[in-house]
Amino acid sequence: MSASKFLVAAAAISMSATAFAAGAHGEGHGSGRSGHGGGHGAATGEPGKASEASRTITVEMHDNYYEPDSIEVKPGETVRFVVQNKGNLVHEFNIGTPAMHEAHQKEMMMMVEHGIIQGGTLNRDMMEMDMGNGKAMKHNDPNSVLLEPGQSREVVWKFSDKGDIEFACNVPGHYQAGMYGEVDFD
């Protein structure tokens, strides 16, 4: 990368870091980037302890859909999800309300615009970069994982009693194309 190109790239990142900070994360995040889980806990639930999980649900992520694409949980149940990316593209597993997903899609758009997500590649080192304001696009909220093809991770979640909750992939276009699943309460 030539020096001038690097400068342009750096400028682009710092510019949008401002936009990023002013984006969907403006409200309700006492714990900073710890994110959606804390901020909207009442609606969806909270990070759970693996020892309290009543069962394990394996969710496969394909291009661009989940298997299964709906799950049933009991109010207040803690579930251990094993999330596997079986596709050729980067995918997310994110537990939230439709409104939370919509807000998060703006952030994911920036991750694509900055080259952090490129088709089947996730440039994790770029996610660690300080945006100049102490923030980074780490995507480390406990209610979600972002995986490259072939990767597998766990999410342990204690669901709230009820709510309009979906698990969804907010990589641009994926949610709109139908990559979401319903959480039905017993």
């Binding site: 593209l89 641009p172 276009g173 994926h174």
Partner: peptide, 16 residues
């Protein structure tokens, strides 16, 4: 909003 999922019959990575 429209999400483009296919061009000329072939699936494309969705674009809003």
């Amino acid at each position: 909003d429209m999400t483009v999922v296919q061009a000329d019959g072939n699936n494309v990575q969705p674009v809003n």
